[in-house]
Amino acid sequence: MRIGTARKLFVGFGLLPSVLLYAVFVVVPVFWSAYYGFMDWKGIGEARFIGFDNYVEALTHDIFWQSLGNNLIVVAASVFGQVPLALLLALLLSQGTWFQRFVRASVFMPMVLSSVVIGIIWSYIYQPQIGLLNGILSFVGLEEWKRAWLSDPSIAMWMIAIPIIWNFIGPYLIMFLAALSSIPQELNDAAAIDGATRTRRLFSITLPMIWDTIKVAIVLCISGSLKAFDLIYVMTKGGPAHATELLASYMYNNTFNVYRYGYGSAVSTLIVIISLLLIAGSQILMRRNNQ
């Protein structure tokens, strides 16, 4: 369909208010914060220009890298936990019988809970004295498996990845269900007549047809995981001793507890850059796979 110049102008004009809002509230703050990253600023008083010092400090600070490592654990748990699980559930639950609808609703339910509620629920599950998990372990006689799940730095991060997966599986399930329902039934029928097995149909028809949705899901997963903050804030506050620190909580702590607004801004800017790099990387990887 060809669009005339006048039409284009009109469309542009119509979009103007939202583009303006987006620019003012999203684009400008991102650059603004990058700019504050060059300052030594306490939030009050004069900001002093110090060049790349904040960025260099962040990149040479071991806690920054530890936080990035923890973030990558969350990214991995989301991409390799949420997406395949959601996909599997979507394949199993695509029929829509009464039971399947019930399971779907149950899987989606955590999504409508606030993350503070989820954080508190899981804190009680992991609670060392009265917690559900330790309670079950002693009930089945596995006393020696009991742990202080969130205080033990060697496992705390993985323990937090579990509620993160549990929390966000719902929306991906819905996305995949929608994508599956858009595959024309004729394709599957034709393949079945040609003698293709179920597995063959899955890999040759279903997955390629919803590949774009999977890509979108992975991008959402990566960007969501790098923003992760609320569950950590409620469950561990990044502790003990930075064991569960994420980039976002590291940034928050430096900005609002230590009052180094400039440094915090530099860390936020680095988070944006890292997210963009990761998403670009995953896109390139998946494009190859697709061809």
Binding site: S123, Y126, Q127, P128, Q129, A148, W149, L150, S151, A156, M235, T236, G239, P240
Partner: peptide
Amino acid sequence: FQEGFNSMDNTQMEMMFAHGQ
């Protein structure tokens, strides 16, 4: 200190003491 003190907050600690635990 009790097990898991680094993952409990001060309110929980005060409750433990208030309830004689």
